[in-house]
Design a protein around this nucleic acid. Structure first.
Length: 954
RNA sequence: GCCGAGGUGGCGAAAUUGGCAGACGCGCCGGUCUUAGGAGCCGGUGGAGAAAUCCGUAGGGGUUCGAGUCCCCUCCUCGGCACCA
């Protein structure tokens, strides 16, 4: 009879909640216990509920947490809700319910689903980013950003007060562009300072300008810049939220338009965010994604004077200053501000029409064009500072305004893009670098590698690295170039024109300048509104909250900032709040923070690589600089769980007429939403004919040598693959269903047994039964078939047979090692093996039964607790000592050794474990199966690898 | 195109330092109990072969007594980036 998992699981889930079994101890109570902070990426509680992908990571961290508790470690293992955000609000609008209601309902459903899996969270530490007691501190951290600036000398954030002081005591001065620079007179530059002095002292500035200067230095600042405006969502989006020119949420079109927005100065931290990746135990691929996103490139900015306008120079950014002599033209981004100034009257028409053409094209169309490079001559010429040569200036959309200086020197001989453009416009191509190995580079494309400088005057003969150094030094001396570093990373666009987010703790005066509200006024609550819909314009919904909007302070009228923070704000620091979730005075108590941080293990999906994980690291570093946290990085070790795909599907391609086409004949296989759901589509090789995939039943296909074919038409190859689970594809597996049918313990085991945690793997419901059989067999082994309630009839107080004792110790070792290394699949395999062996006994010795139960507990906690109780214990096993293994019990008295002849296996011999090499070789040579292979041959060598094998070479 | 990860039975996967390829689970085959089996139990299961034996870790080459594992080349799959100067 199968064990009653439903009753058992309910019973123990209630027990754990009522007894607060998994409460983490505060440092004061923990004594000498070591700590472990084991964290899951908290979910966005969507309306569709938990997905089978969520419990994969949650179960992994749960196993670790339960294991560590049994090892006597103080474990912090919390869960919460990232509950602000677009989907809840979109849903609220669609159904005309307040997002607060839908969010509460979704959280309730998520909590129920997560608790039904028996995960050992400390529920007293649950956080919800939409709770005013939580977002009060999100707003507080925003004020920290607002009241700080980045000190470029020390490379760290400091309070804005410090900046003010430095300006007032004239260590810093204000440059013409409003930026803050070191006072040259403080730098031993008095001699030239007199004539160069264009910077101004703080006290010389009018009050308004003083405020502008300070505001421009803040880590949270307002700026009017071109942003990603998404009319479909009625909000702007950050670069990270735009994928292929469309919104990541909903897939709506995004357009560039200038808007005044809150920005966070993450670029100031680019270097530290990049360098500190080396301190982290994270997957290499994920670190690489962050490196790519930060996109550091080291080079030089070089000034090119404009021919005929001595006052005007255009600065270009290049990573290859060693190729300056090969620059045969210059290109500005079409929207570059100097274009109007340099374009002579007779070229205006051509330039303007090109710009109009570019503006009408979407990013998509631009990208689709690939190597087709367009552009027009401006009519102006620039002077190359290395040789005085006059080169034509073009505008072309392959140069981006947003990167570097928005202008390049074009070296077609050594840059692919410049090469393509030069070819298309008949511009000269002049090689100035030759390969170091003396080979001749192909003439039909650019040679982009490093080499030796040629035709380059002062740097002739130098290898690339040295040539770069020297040319920068020479030009720097002439004042026409300087070393420069550029990043792809942009400042973080931090405003959203939506209702369901944290309000900014900011007031705007009549001139639109920002004033922070006092910390004592936090939290600044979202106003209750019946109409929270987007306005259809960039004006945020909060502007409709008339009572809330206007504020009187000191006789002045202010309006509140009506933008809200983006979804990522709350998740930037939630791991800190878990440490001290009910603190009314601080966002986290410093002693507790020091005890628990950094997070020892963080598990979540790779989709957060450049959003959450980069933003959170940035906030953490700011908090660190300001002395609010003790750690430089928040997440010491991070693991990405692999995606769980839907069940494997078989498709045959069919032409429009319905006749089958072999998958071998298909190209560009992809998915398309055809209105009747998502379909697999492809095109016929050597043609444009569109093919549609038709889903097949497993029985209709057959495996052949190197693939699958139609059973009744083996000439037709079949497409076999697993798809990402999605509602529109209809292949989503619901955890409620699985837990109902098989129980939570079985579900947990199956998810962990599918394969390595990090691997992407297809779901296969049919396989679950294996884990169900395992649990039922374990139950039968210990409890028996028709047990009286509460008993464990198959337990005896006798010694464990030798071979089983050895197996038990082996299992204790293997399971412990595997859990520590997150190899849950092989740990479970070992438990199954031990259980299979126990099944051969007529009764199970108590020690074996108890150890097995404890080893099983992290994986299948409900059945383990029940078995533990039936074994006569009255308290939960959650903090029982983890079994220990005895090295001496692992040793066998005899060992079986393979015997090879010329590396091929011929026999296995059994010898005493302590036999010496001579004895073993002699025994091996005598083996009947080995003899024929040695007969008549000369024995050239005999090898004995201790404990491993014997090999004869003949 | 560039970067990263990977390719092992019908399927999911194992395999410390190079040392018995396929642990464990699914499926499948045979047996058993049963009024019944989509339950349980026992046995088998990489391919070919009656067997001896041979062949087998994407393909090709190499190093080695010995290669899934190390080196070189090629192919394929997945993920990321993609005019970033």
């Amino acid at each position: 009879m199968a064990y009653n998992f439903t009753a058992i699981e309910k019973k123990w889930q209630r027990y754990w909640l009522e007894n607060k079994t998994f409460a983490a101890l505060d440092p004061a109570e923990a004594g000498g216990m070591s700590k472990a902070y084991v964290l899951d990426m908290f979910p966005y509680p969507s309306g569709s509920g938990l997905h089978v992908g969520h419990p994969e990571g949650y179960t992994a961290t749960d196993i670790i947490s339960r294991y560590l508790r049994m090892k006597g470690v103080n474990v912090l293992h919390p869960m919460g809700w990232d509950a602000f955000g677009l989907p809840a609000e979109q849903y609220a609008i669609k159904t005309n319910t307040h997002p607060r209601q839908t969010t509460e309902r979704n959280i309730g459903n998520f909590r129920r689903q997560i608790q039904m899996l028996g995960l050992s969270y400390d529920w007293d530490r649950e956080v919800d980013t939409t709770d005013p007691d939580y977002y009060r501190w999100t707003q507080w951290i925003f004020l920290q950003l607002f009241n700080s600036y980045f000190d470029p000398v020390d490379q760290k954030a400091r309070p804005i007060k410090h900046l003010l002081q430095e300006l007032m005591n004239e260590n810093l001065v204000v440059a013409p562009d409003g930026s803050v620079v070191l006072n040259p007179t403080q730098e031993g530059m008095e001699s030239i300072a007199g004539e160069m002095r264009i910077e101004r002292l703080w006290r010389e500035l009018p009050a308004d300008e003083q405020r502008d200067v300070i505001d421009a230095q803040r880590l949270a600042y307002m700026d009017e810049i071109p942003v990603n405006w998404c009319p479909g969502l009625g909000t702007v989006l950050s670069n990270e939220e735009v994928i292929d020119g469309k919104s990541e949420v909903g897939g709506f079109a995004v357009e560039r338009r200038p808007m005044r927005q809150w920005m966070l100065r993450i670029t100031a931290y680019a270097d530290r965010l990049l360098a500190d990746l080396n301190l982290l135990e994270w997957p290499e691929s994920l670190k690489e994604m962050q490196r790519n996103w930060i996109g550091k490139s080291v080079g030089a900015e070089v000034d090119f004077e404009m021919d005929g306008d001595e006052d005007l120079a255009v600065s270009v950014f290049t990573t290859r200053p060693d190729t300056l002599y090969g620059a045969t033209y210059m290109v500005l981004a079409p929207e570059h501000p100097l274009v109007d100034r340099i374009t002579p009257a007779d070229r205006r028409e051509a330039v303007e029409s090109y710009r109009r053409m570019i503006a009408a094209r979407s990013d998509r169309e631009r990208m689709a064009d690939g190597k087709q490079k367009t552009g027009v001559f401006t009519g102006a010429h620039a002077v190359n500072p290395v040789n005085g040569e006059k080169i034509p200036v073009y505008i072309a959309d392959y140069v981006l305004m947003g990167y570097g200086t928005g202008a390049i020197m074009a070296v077609p001989a050594h840059d692919e893009r410049d090469f393509d453009f030069a070819r298309a416009n008949n511009l000269p191509i002049r090689p100035v670098v030759k390969p170091a190995d003396g080979s001749t580079p192909p003439a039909d494309r650019a040679f982009v590698g490093e080499g030796i400088a040629i035709h380059s005057d002062v740097i002739n003969g130098l290898p690339t690295a040295q040539a770069k150094e020297k040319i920068i030094a020479v030009l720097d001396g002439e004042g026409t170039a300087h070393r420069s570093v550029n990043y792809k990373l942009r400042d973080w666009l931090f405003s959203r024109q939506r209702y369901w987010g944290e309000p900014f703790p900011i007031l705007l005066d009549k001139e639109g300048r920002a004033v922070a509200i006092d910390e004592s006024e936090l939290p600044l609550r979202l106003p209750e509104m019946d109409d929270f819909k987007p306005t259809g314009t960039p004006e945020p919904p909060l502007s409709k909250a008339a009572d809330w909007l206007n504020v009187q302070r000191d006789g002045q009228t202010y309006t509140r900032e009506t933008n809200t923070m983006p979804q990522w704000a709350g998740s930037c620091w939630y791991y800190l709040r878990y440490i001290d979730p009910h603190n009314k005075d601080r966002f986290v108590d410093p002693d507790k923070e020091r005890y628990w941080m950094p997070v020892d293990l963080y598990v979540g999906g790779v989709e957060h690589a450049v959003l959450h994980l980069l933003y959170a690291r940035f906030w953490h570093k700011v908090l660190f600089d300001l002395g609010h946290v003790s750690s430089n990085e928040p997440f010491a070790r991070l693991v990405n769980q692999g995606l769980i795909l839907g069940e494997t599907e078989y498709h045959v391609f069919e032409s429009a007429s319905g006749s089958p086409v072999s998958a071998a004949e298909a190209r560009n296989i992809g998915e398309e939403n055809t209105g009747s759901g998502i379909q697999l589509v492809a095109y016929r090789k050597n043609g444009d004919e569109k093919l549609i995939g038709r889903r097949l039943d497993e029985a209709e296909v057959e495996k052949v040598a190197d693939g699958y074919v139609l059973r009744d038409n083996p000439a037709i190859r079949v497409d076999v693959r697993s798809f990402k689970m999605s509602k529109s594809r209809g292949n989503v597996v619901n955890p409620d269903q699985i837990v109902g049918d098989y129980g939570a313990d079985c579900f947990r085991l199956y998810e962990m047994y599918m394969g390595p945690l990090e691997a992407q793997k297809p779901w296969n419901t049919r396989d679950i039964v294996g884990m169900s059989r395992f649990l039922n067999a374990a139950w039968r082994n210990l409890v028996g078939d028709d047990e009286p309630a509460g008993s464990a009839v198959r337990i005896v107080d006798s010694a464990i047979p030798d071979d089983l004792n050895r197996q038990m110790h082996r299992t204790i070792r293997k399971v412990g090692e595997d859990i520590a290394a997150l190899r849950f699949n092989t740990a479970i395999a070992e438990l199954i093996k031990l259980n299979n062996d126990m099944g051969k006994l007529t009764a199970v010795p108590r020690e074996l039964a108890e150890n097995f139960t404890l080893l099983l507990a992290p994986f299948a906690p409900h059945i383990a607790e029940e078995l533990w109780q039936r074994l006569g214990h009255h308290k939960s096993l959650a903090r029982r000592p983890w079994p220990t293994f005895d090295e001496s019990k692992l040793a066998e008295s005899t060992m079986e050794l393979p015997v090879q002849v010329n590396g091929k296996l011929r026999d296995r011999i059994s010898v005493p474990a302590d036999a010496d090499e001579q004895t073993i070789l002699a025994a091996a040579a005598k083996s009947e199966k080995v003899q024929p292979w040695l007969a008549g041959k000369t024995l050239r060598k005999q090898l004995y690898v201790p404990g491993k094998l014997v090999n004869f070479v003949v």
